[in-house]
Write a protein that binds this DNA or RNA. Structure first.
Lengths: 293, 293
DNA sequence: GGCTGTCATACCCGGCCGGTATCACCGACG
DNA sequence: CGTCGGTGATACCGGCCGGGTATGACAGCC
């Protein structure tokens, strides 16, 4: 009797995230009373108090925090199992871009998550080299717009990913190092600093009238909040902001952009990463191909 | 609709492991027909054929193999969630040895999995040093007799483990390196080779009349199959076998044993390892203590 | 051809999952 | 101070589904 149904986990996680039975029930598409009862049953079966119900909302106990973390991981594992099984059986429902035919014999497929517009060159070479391998699977390239590649691997939307330290964490995955590159400042071609052969992070941190762009409202600073890379490119060309990128970003620079190496920025290392427990031949072949590029 | 209940996963994994509905049902403590139906429903919901039922048993399809692997991982994650939640809430049911009082304030507990009789010295120093830390949790030492430490971490029986490469795989865990040591051959003190100051793996591989001990019947070879380290020590003292161990094994040698360094054996590295998604202060403190020893 | 052993089907029952209605409680507020 | 709004808990009920038993379809085998 040391197991939980995923339904119970979904319910508890919803309540723990909302800290409110009513909203959680709404999110789950059900009424509040059965939800209350289900969580109570879960608490009884675990023999542990998960929530501290003082009037005016709900608070997590220490055990509740633990179950929130571990339960999320378990739910991810369950949905990953479903997604990967469907994919292996050919009953997939993704409308993803970039399907590349394999050798036709096996109907294997591999979903590769990449950060949009990063490491073009590497990705291109990798896909070409892999497609040339005998026995290669079809590779779907899944650009992770808003989401972390790590999340994609965890919940099964992807089988393998290109990740970039120090931006992504490789924790919990197996990985191989592929390339290392420096970082560059991307600024308007007309700006005085664009003539320099080298800059420092401090230089670009506070250029008068040219604040650093931010990817989210959470980051403090005066710079504009941007949502995609095209928007950013536009704003740079308009002399409104400056940004820092790995060197491979030179691939998408405009004529009105200038790139200057940053002397003291940490190098960006591109890894190919996959769930540690993977046992797929197609994946192994892709990794081997990548490391031999 | 991209999720599974753990019940369905348990059922399918049982069938996939037994490749026989009747035996699987027995193992699950239920009748065969509901099990058949449940697996059929699972196949319908996934839209994928998992089993190839030709008369005379059952075979896994490619998708079935995938679900077996991924489903096991998901089930491990679910039971880990339950175990760790119970532990965090103080409603634990383990009868494990080695409970060591923390500083009393927090009722936190940490289960540390170790290979029985490995790295005594290191373990001792670690426990002492950790207990001296302010805010340390109670540490339960869980000797993993038959089981891999990695499995203990995966299914929540342990929170952290001492693991030894190249014997254990660190895949999927975060880890820090602690110590490196060479390996020694443990042989009867009276044996001629015991006088040597150094040996090679080839030397001990085929000593006439002294075959290498095996831990499992799966390993081929003429040596005796042993089940625990005491049994092995006995057999060595009786001139029946020889074995290879990390240097720290000197701690438990008998008077009738001799230890000779192995010149070409790969070094054994002891790591402290934990699930990559862990977010526990007590664990972080233990890791920091360990790396500072 | 019966026998054995496999998995699937048919049918029934009880439990539990979820919904509606309501309660108990507290804080805010005029 | 009574009322009201909003919280989660309780009571009750109906339908679904998970599980059991009995049986069927089908292949291999002596």
């Amino acid at each position: 009797m040391d197991t939980v149904e995923t339904r119970e986990l979904r319910y508890f996680v919803a309540v723990a995230e909302e800290l409110h039975f009513g909203r959680a029930a709404e999110r789950l598409g059900m009424a509040q009373p059965p939800l209350s009862r289900a969580v109570q049953q879960l608490e009884r079966r675990l023999g542990v108090r998960l929530l501290e119900r003082d009037r005016r909302g709900v608070a997590l106990t220490r055990a509740g925090e633990m179950l929130l973390h571990e339960g999320r991981a378990a739910l991810d594992a369950a949905t990953a199992a479903v997604r990967r099984t469907r994919r292996a059986g050919g009953a997939d429902g993704t409308g993803s871009t970039g399907g590349t035919g394999g050798t036709g014999g096996t109907r294997n497929r591999l979903v590769l998550a990449v950060k949009a517009a990063a490491a073009h060159e590497l990705l291109h070479k990798l896909l070409d080299a892999y497609a040339a391998e005998p026995g290669a699977a079809a590779v779907e390239v899944l650009p992770s717009g808003t989401c972390e590649q790590g999340d994609m691997l965890r919940d099964g939307r992807a089988d393998v990913a290109l990740m970039h330290t120090p931006f992504n964490s490789l924790a919990g995955f197996d990985s191989e190092e592929l390339t290392t590159e420096g970082q560059i400042a991307v600024l308007p071609a007309a700006h005085p600093l664009a003539a320099r052969t080298s800059l420092t992070l401090a230089d670009v941190a506070d250029i008068p009238g040219l604040p650093l762009a931010r990817w989210s409202h959470d980051t403090p600073g005066p710079g504009p909040v941007i949502h995609d890379q095209t928007e950013l490119a536009q704003l740079i060309a308009l002399d409104r902001t400056v940004a820092v990128f790995p060197e491979s970003a030179r691939a998408w620079l405009w004529a009105k952009h200038a790139a200057v190496p940053l002397a003291d920025a940490p190098p960006v290392v591109t890894h190919i990463a996959w769930p540690a427990h993977s046992r797929s031949l197609a994946l192994a072949l892709l990794v081997r191909t990548a490391t031999r590029l």
